[in-house]
Write a protein that binds this DNA or RNA. Structure first.
Lengths: 131, 131
DNA sequence: ATAAATGATACTATATTAGTATTATTAAGG
DNA sequence: CCTTAATAATACTAATATAGTATCATTTAT
């Protein structure tokens, strides 16, 4: 079981690559594909999604491409994970269609919740710039 | 994105229920289904898997059922997660078919690894008995 | 106008998750 | 030994998530 999904992973690689360039530099999908050897169409969609979520700015048309929308130190890993994997829920009750019998005294979920809070806190400290 | 899968969740519920009984008590799948309202055939397979992995002892034939194979305090949540979800890998490199360019200097995976180690340590502290 | 880029959206393939169904095996008890 | 009540093994299925691919539209510099 992997904690990080492929699109999150690819997004981080692309962002790390972009962060190496000058601030505000416009980079095309093809450049990233050449350097990082990621599947072109898939990566294209990933970058589009990053643009929609204000991580990247996209420039259409000739000489277009993508640039980081903010300083790499302000792009947190949790942002990327949330975009591609949704909120990481450590303590969700998985009973279907009915209320959990021990709903408000579930010590298991309480402990999972604590662990989840720690993980999110630590992941929040990691930024593209810090990598 | 859920960290815990449904079979892990159901297994923990079943084990917690069984741990309430006397030590070594034999309990049938049907009893657990009645009390915890879990899908019978699915739960049956889950308990079989727990038996195969030495968490439960199974007794076939009339008056059969399952009992905990050891003290509930010695059944850790990580054991259950490993059985149903496999090893939880926080830092796996997801590049396909080719070597990662920055294989031995990947600061991202290094940080993920640290977080994963913490999570596994904390999950290892949680036992069925402690819940 | 053309070329070179992204945008939107639909499609597909594979894997994982969450089950269900069927038949076999085992063991207690009359 | 036969019946009954339990698990064992295994195959099957349905739904969902993951990992892509394909197509056509739109934009913009020259």
């Amino acid at each position: 079981m992997n904690f990080i999904s492929r699109d999150t992973d690819y997004a981080v690689r692309a962002l790390m690559f972009m962060a190496k360039g000058e601030k505000g530099e416009i980079i095309t999908v093809d450049e990233i594909v050449r350097r990082e050897k990621l599947p072109e169409r898939f990566l294209r969609r990933i970058l589009q999604k990053l643009a929609k979520n204000d991580i990247l700015v996209s420039y259409k048309g000739k000489d277009g491409g993508f640039s980081l929308s903010k300083d790499a130190d302000r792009i947190r890993i949790t942002d990327i994970i949330n975009i591609f994997q949704g909120h990481v829920d450590f303590a969700k009750c998985l009973l279907k269609g009915r209320k959990c019998p021990n709903t408000n005294s579930c010590s298991f979920r309480k402990k999972l919740k604590d662990i989840g809070a720690y993980v999110n806190k630590e992941l929040g400290k990691i930024t593209i710039g810090s990598l």
